[in-house]
């Protein structure tokens, strides 16, 4: 069964034996290779199965798994480098700058298109976008495949306070300038 006449997969043996001898050689090789294969399967049959009952058990992932992204939003500077690096153009972001503080509106990743290539992760100057170990992305419609990576939207109280402080400082500076004039 293993190697047969005219089999493209088996390389031609250099000294071509007569066809009658080849018949016996083929027969012998077929029987022997089948027996070898069967013995391998038999040995595997008595080994512990390597299958994992997935929903109940899960595989241990090594640290480099490229799963669903997560964003460290407080580090992000809205530089758009990740979106530009993305070959399938699946990252969309929008924010308003208030001085140094950012008012986040949108940071979505479209997993209909994303191929989990990690090209968005490398160029990030702040090292704030990562791929995690979550991989089960099961939804019933396509809209749910567009994931929002933001942990908060708009401005936090802290940011508002900082903005207020910078504005107050700015106002104070302006006032001093006016005084100086």
């Amino acid at each position: 069964m293993g190697s047969m006449e005219g089999d493209a997969l088996t390389p031609a043996r250099p000294p071509k034996p007569s066809s009658f001898r080849r018949w016996w050689v083929n027969l012998y090789e077929g029987v022997v290779s089948t027996a070898q294969g069967m013995s391998i399967t038999l040995r595997t049959f008595f080994k512990k199965p390597v299958t994992v009952q997935y929903p109940e058990q899960e595989l241990e992932l090594d640290g480099r798994y490229r799963g669903i992204h997560f964003l460290e939003q407080d580090l992000c500077i809205y530089c758009d480098v990740c979106a530009k690096a993305c070959p399938v153009d699946c990252i969309e972001m929008d924010a308003t700058r208030h001085g140094k503080e950012l008012e986040w509106h949108v940071f979505t990743l479209d997993y209909n298109r994303c191929m989990l290539c990690e090209l968005c992760v490398y160029p990030c100057p702040k090292d704030c976008i990562h791929q995690g170990e979550e991989y089960a992305l099961v939804t019933e419609n396509r809209e749910d495949m567009v994931l929002d990576l933001l942990t908060w939207k708009g401005l936090t109280d802290e940011q508002k306070q900082k903005i207020a402080e910078t504005e107050a400082a700015k106002a104070a500076r302006d006032a001093e300038k006016e005084k100086g004039e």
Binding site: G37, M38, T41
Partner: peptide
């Protein structure tokens, strides 16, 4: 069944 685990499918000419 064991043969089924082991051997790949032959071509029709084989």
């Amino acid at each position: 069944i064991w043969v089924r685990w082991t051997l790949p499918r032959l071509r029709i000419d084989q």
